[in-house]
Every structure is written in structure tokens, then in C-alpha cells.
Design a protein around this nucleic acid. Structure first.
Length: 641
RNA sequence: GCCGGCGUAGCUCAGUUGGCAGAGCAGCUGAUUCGUAAUCAGCAGGUCAAGGGUUCGAUUCCCUUCGCCGGCUCCA
């Protein structure tokens, strides 16, 4: 029964249509020229196909290919095309789900035989054929019962499971050619709209992401509106590979992880150790400035300590087995907190003593499953830049605020200016007083708001012992790595009966804050390497300057320059090998040394040096003193380069 | 841990349908004394990840283990 509906356009104007008019027709009235970039429409809050018949009043908006949603729809359609290709090519394959993701899309299949890299080529070829046929994506709605039978008859058990999870009575189905799939949509009008795609990988993935379920075969792919954009993306991936810290770690001789030593255990080579020790020096200096006390604690402790802390009970999976020492069980430490508590408890503490801030670069060991290890970013032994603050409840907010500012200061000092910040609040299971939780959460929130930085609240995602702020640094591969964490803890003070003597002469329980600014030195170093592509800023560069002679006639003068820079604590090397300048420059360049000093007859005569930057610029020759001034000026945290 | 791929010289990688293991770079030796990303020549370098099996013969085929890579899962 047709009647009139009122459709409003984004510019506020409206028009009446008879019901059943498609979104496409309405959008054409709004803006004819726009339409070629439009892949779908949005009616009120709902995303719909262009062919969707309008049946109610509402605000319609075009969804263009250059929007986030538009691209997701485009890629989702590509995943359907892939599923069709796979179904056509391989017998006995069951389909499951195929969403769009950040950089593309995937589809999970239950296949009697795993896919091979060669299969990808075949699938791509078939996809091209499907695209060439330009088959429309046709939507239909059917009763759930009908859908169950339809998919059941085809043996699509996963689809049946999905249908059963849908609360509505009707489900929608999208069909292109002979292939149809349970899908909410929307989709592109037809397969021919897909202009550029590539299948990028095969991987196992558990059904519903649960490792107890069957492992499915996932095929990853990506799609872009134009071939150029696809090529740019693939180029970017290649470029990102060049920044991989594992590759650069080898090339620049920064660190190694040896099979003979064990997976996930890092050896810092001299070059990496220079960077680490500079980070540590900076870290210590800043901690003293911020009124922390630096401490050192042992690497192993009696297992009872971890029973008291609760780690033995809750995180047994990640702890290494005990070792017997004169009949007592010891374990290698997975955390530093119990030690810090012991130091706190070595004396009676007064309310006047608080806050007490203990900081330690504490090396801890945790068992990580072999499949998750990843270069420096996920290891089994690592050094936390850990600290524990013991404070009175009324000091909490100030402490949190200063920790947060301290964290951001440190991250910015290393050139990290982009982060994702999360505030995780009280989970269902928790310890501590509700009142304390509320106060702690608002303390964290207030502190975050004062920074003016955007953050996301993760309700219920806090740890059982307290709410927390996590800061993730984004690396050049687009991966977000959790580094900084600030956690309030009501649990450990209770378990260890940590106390201070209050103004009232009675015992009170302090609140503990755990915090790590860089997280672990290993992970932070890994992120740092990728961030700078191995070209560390001057203050962190393992070698800051290299003096390159032209012939051995210049050796004495070069040595003099070298000695003078050494005396100024500049990390300088001398290359007096009997090699051509071109070779020396190339090698220094590959080592990403910030400054090369070319030293030949003319420099020697004028008693100057001719600096060349690793970017390839040659500076005007200058005196050694001038150069020393230049280096010391640029060699500071958070300076560019 | 699970799924898939891979493991050949210090590094990057060829290769063997099962028959004495190859290159470039790096290293060493010698020559070259040179101006901003590779001077030339020679030499040396390997239990083909480890263990087991099939075979007259295995780096190659099969099994197991270890490690790495891409994901999944996990991550106080």
C-alpha cells in the first residue's frame, strides 16, 4: 500500500516520495554529481543499500567511498566476492564470517584442506571474473525459519549458528550470481564496482575467536577504490618492513635474540646498550627531579612472597617453575611490587612520610606462549621502568595527575606524540571499597581531563585490584603498543597489610599506585627503533659523529679532532682506513650516524671540519669548537633529527 | 599453545625431478693514497636447524624436535 513519505536531505531540504522509492533515486535528487562516489546510504542511524526501498520518513545521507564507512562497505563486498570465488573453486568449504577490518577484509572458511599461497592466485583470478560479470548484490529478507532450512540444507552449520544468535524474526540475505550469504549489509550495487583488490595472507583463526573452537582458515585481503591507492598501500607495507626493528636490530648491531640462549631473551649489543644506558640515565635523572627514590631488588624470591601477593594463585600460568634452594622454593620474579612493599615495610611509616615513591629498573621474567613472541615487542625477560607510590587517599588525585604529566613528558622527550589513551574502570569482580573505587576512578578521570588529551573509557575493563590508565604508542607499522600504564591498587596493601600511622595515631592503609612510563625497556626500544627507522635522534645515537679522512696524510689532524670531541663526551668514531671517501660516507650512512666529518687537506690547512648530515646535506666548514657547540645544542631530548 | 609457511656461509639469497654445495656482500691477504652512498685482485668460509627413518646414496622424500615468520588465542 503506497503512501507518501518525507525524506530530508543533509542540507536540511526535504522532498516527498512514494514508499518503495529507492535510496539511490532520492540521493540523485539531492546531488546528481555526487552519486558516482556514493556506495551506500544512511537513513537515520541505519546504513542501507542504494537499491533499498524507502518506507518511512527520515534523514538520508550519502555514504561515499572516501568515508570510513564507505570504504568498509566496499571491502565487505570484496570479502563476499572472495567467498563466492572460494565456494566455486573448492569443494566442501563452509563459510563463516567475512568482515571488513582496518586495512582490508578477511573471510573465515572451514575448509577440508588448508589453503596454500598458490590458492590465493587462483582465488584472485576467479574474483576478477566475478567482478567482470558485474553481478548485482541483491538483498532479500526471509523468515529465520526459512533461512535456517536454507543454510541447513547446504550444510552451512556456521551460518545456522549465526542465525540462531540473531534476535529478530527475519534475517537478510545478499546474493550475487549463484552465491548468497547471510549478511546485514549494506553492499555495493554490484561486483563490478570493485576496482582494486589483493589477497594478502592466509592464517588460522578460531571460530568465534575461542581457542576451544575449531580452527578455521582465514584469508586476508584488501581493496581500494583505485589501483593507485592499492599500490600506494602495498608500497607503504614494503616501506614499513624496512623499519622493522628486528631487521634494523641486526643491521645496526643493536641487539640479538639467540636460539641457543632461548626465545624471548634479549642480548643488548654495544650499540643498543649505548641507547639503553642513555635512556636509563635520562630516566634516573628525571626520577630524582620528580622526587622518586631509586631502589634495587633481587631477581628471585621465595615463592611464599608470591602466594601472599596473589600472583601465585592468579597468574601461575605465566610464572616460571620454582627452584629448590636448601629445601625452600624460590621463583624468578614476574613483578617488582612485593619487593617495594618489603622496603616500605622495613620501617614504621608516618602519614608525614607519604607519598613515598620507589622506582626501579627491575628485570622480570614471565612465561609467554611461544606463538606470541615478537622481537623486542613481546619477550620473556624484560626490564620494567617500574615505580610504586604509596600515598594517603587524599593524595591520590595529585599523585595521579603528576604521574600522568610525568609520563607524557617522558614520551614526548623521546619524540612520541601520538597515543591512544584508555581509562579502564571497575570490573564485575573487584576488591577494595566501592567508595575508594569511585574516588580513584574520578582521580584518574580528572587527571586525564586536565591534560586535554582525548581518551577512551573502557567500562569494566579495569584489573580486579583497581582502575587504570593505559597509554599506547602507535608505531610506524600502525600497530599500537602498550607502553605506559598507571594503575591504582587496593589489593596488595591489603594482602601485605601495608600501613602508615595517621594523625590520629591509628594505623591506616595507604593506596598503592603502580606505574611504568615506558613499560619495558625492551619494548620501548623496539618501538623507538621503528619510530626513527633506526636513525636515532642525536642525543640517543650510538655513534653521533664519525671523522672520515681522505688520505692517511690527514690522520694526525683527524685524530686531534677525534680527541677533542671525545673530551667533550661526544660519541665519536674515527675512520682512517685506507679507503675511498665514497666508501666511508656510504658505510657511515648505512650506520645512520648523524654527522660525518670529512677531513682532507683543505680542512687541515684551515683547521676546520666539513660536516655532512645523514640526510645528505653538507654544511659549511666550521671550526671544531663551532661543531662541538652545534652537537651539544642539538643533542637534547625531544630535539628534531 | 593452535593453523599455515619457512630454516642452505656472518648477512641477503640461488640450487639439487635423490648423485662431490653456489653467488653477492661482509671477513682475511695484497695492491691502490683516492673529496661526499660501493677501487681492484686473491684467499678463506658450510654436519644444507637438530635427531631419527626410507634408500646403494638424503641438503633434497617421510617422521619427530627446536627455532623463525604471518595470523589466532593470551597479555597482571
Amino acid at each position: 500500500m503506497e503512501h507518501l513519505i518525507k525524506i530530508t536531505f543533509p542540507d536540511g531540504k526535504d522532498k516527498q516520495y512514494t514508499t518503495g522509492t529507492t535510496a539511490e533515486i532520492a540521493l540523485k535528487d539531492f546531488d546528481k554529481g555526487l552519486l558516482k562516489n556514493v556506495v551506500a546510504a544512511q537513513l537515520n542511524e541505519r546504513y542501507i543499500d542504494l537499491s533499498f526501498p524507502l518506507n518511512e520518513d527520515g534523514l538520508i545521507k550519502p555514504v561515499t567511498i572516501d568515508s570510513k564507512e564507505g570504504l568498509a562497505i566496499y571491502r565487505h563486498s570484496a570479502s563476499h566476492v572472495m567467498a563466492q570465488a572460494v565456494k566455486e573453486l573448492f569443494d566442501g568449504v563452509k563459510v563463516t564470517i567475512g568482515p571488513s577490518i582496518e586495512d582490508g577484509f578477511y573471510y573465515d572458511f572451514d575448509s577440508p584442506r588448508p589453503f596454500t599461497p598458490e590458492d590465493l592466485g587462483k582465488i584472485e583470478k576467479r574474483m576478477l571474473e566475478i567482478i567482470k560479470k558485474n553481478m548485482p548484490f541483491e538483498r532479500s529478507e526471509i523468515e529465520k525459519k526459512v533461512a535456517l532450512k536454507l543454510f541447513g540444507d547446504m550444510g552451512e552449520i556456521y551460518k545456522q549458528e549465526l542465525i540462531n544468535e540473531i534476535p529478530e524474526d527475519k534475517v537478510s540475505i545478499y546474493k550475487q550470481g549463484g552465491f548468497f550469504d547471510l549478511c546485514r549489509g549494506p553492499h555495493l550495487p554490484a561486483t563490478g564496482w570493485i576496482k582494486a583488490f589483493k589477497l594478502t595472507g592466509i592464517a588460522g583463526a578460531y571460530w568465534h575467536g575461542n581457542e576451544k573452537n575449531k580452527m578455521l582458515q582465514r584469508i586476508y585481503g584488501t581493496a581500494f577504490p583505485t589501483k593507485q591507492e592499492l599500490e600506494d598501500y602495498l608500497y607503504k607495507i614494503e616501506e614499513a618492513k624496512k623499519r622493522d626493528h628486528r631487521k634494523l636490530g641486526k643491521e645496526l648491531d643493536l641487539f640479538s635474540i639467540s636460539d641457543d640462549i632461548g626465545s624471548g631473551l634479549v642480548c643488548w649489543h654495544p650499540n643498543g646498550a649505548v641507547v639503553r644506558s642513555l635512556i636509563e640515565d635520562f630516566w634516573k635523572k628525571e626520577h630524582y627531579k620528580h622526587d622518586y627514590k631509586i631502589i634495587y631488588t633481587p631477581h628471585i624470591a621465595k615463592v611464599d612472597l608470591w602466594k601472599t601477593s596473589g600472583h601465585w594463585e592468579f597468574y601461575r600460568e605465566n610464572l616460571y617453575s620454582p627452584m629448590d634452594i636448601e629445601g625452600q622454593d624460590f621463583i624468578v620474579k614476574p613483578m617488582n611490587c612485593p619487593f617495594h612493599i618489603q622496603i616500605y615495610q622495613s620501617q614504621i611509616r608516618s602519614y608525614r612520610d607519604l607519598p613515598i615513591r620507589y622506582a626501579e629498573l627491575g628485570t622480570v621474567y614471565r612465561f609467554e606462549r611461544s606463538g606470541v613472541l615478537h622481537g623486542l615487542l613481546r619477550v620473556r625477560g624484560f626490564t620494567q621502568d617500574d615505580a610504586h607510590i604509596f600515598c594517603r587517599p587524599n593524595q591520590l588525585e595529585d599523585e595521579i595527575a603528576s604521574v600522568l604529566n610525568f609520563t607524557l613528558y617522558i614520551l614526548r622527550s623521546f619524540g612520541f606524540n601520538n597515543y591512544d589513551i584508555y581509562l579502564s574502570t571497575r570490573p564485575e569482580k573487584f576488591v577494595g571499597a566501592l567508595d575508594n573505587w569511585t574516588k580513584a576512578e574520578s582521580a584518574l578521570k580528572n587527571a586525564l581531563e586536565k591534560t586535554g588529551l582525548p581518551f577512551q573509557v573502557d567500562p569494566g575493563e579495569g584489573v580486579f585490584y583497581g582502575p587504570k590508565i593505559d597509554i599506547k604508542i602507535k608505531d610506524m607499522l600502525g600497530r599500537a603498543w602498550q607502553c605506559s600504564t598507571i594503575q591504582v591498587d587496593f589489593n596488595l596493601p591489603q594482602r601485605f597489610t601495608v600501613a602508615y600511622r595517621g594523625e590520629d595515631g591509628k594505623e591506616h592503609q595507604p593506596i598503592m599506585i603502580h606505574r611504568a612510563l615506558m613499560g619495558s625497556l625492551e619494548r620501548f626500544f623496539g618501538v623507538l627503533i621503528e619510530h626513527y627507522a633506526g636513525a636515532f635522534p642525536l642525543w640517543l645515537a650510538p655513534v653521533q659523529v664519525i671523522a672520515l679522512t681522505i688520505t692517511e696524510k690527514n690522520n694526525d689532524y683527524a685524530r686531534e679532532v677525534y680527541d677533542r670531541l671525545r673530551k667533550e663526551n661526544i660519541r665519536v668514531e674515527l675512520d682512517i682506513r685506507n679507503e675511498k671517501l665514497g666508501l666511508k660516507v656510504r658505510e657511515a650512512q648505512l650506520k645512520k650516524i648523524p654527522y660525518m666529518l670529512v677531513i682532507g687537506n683543505s680542512e687541515e690547512e684551515k683547521q676546520v671540519v666539513a660536516p655532512r648530515t645523514r640526510i645528505g646535506a653538507t654544511l659549511e666548514p666550521m671550526s671544531v669548537d663551532e661543531f662541538i657547540g652545534l652537537v651539544s645544542k642539538e643533542s637534547k631530548p625531544n630535539s628534531a633529527g
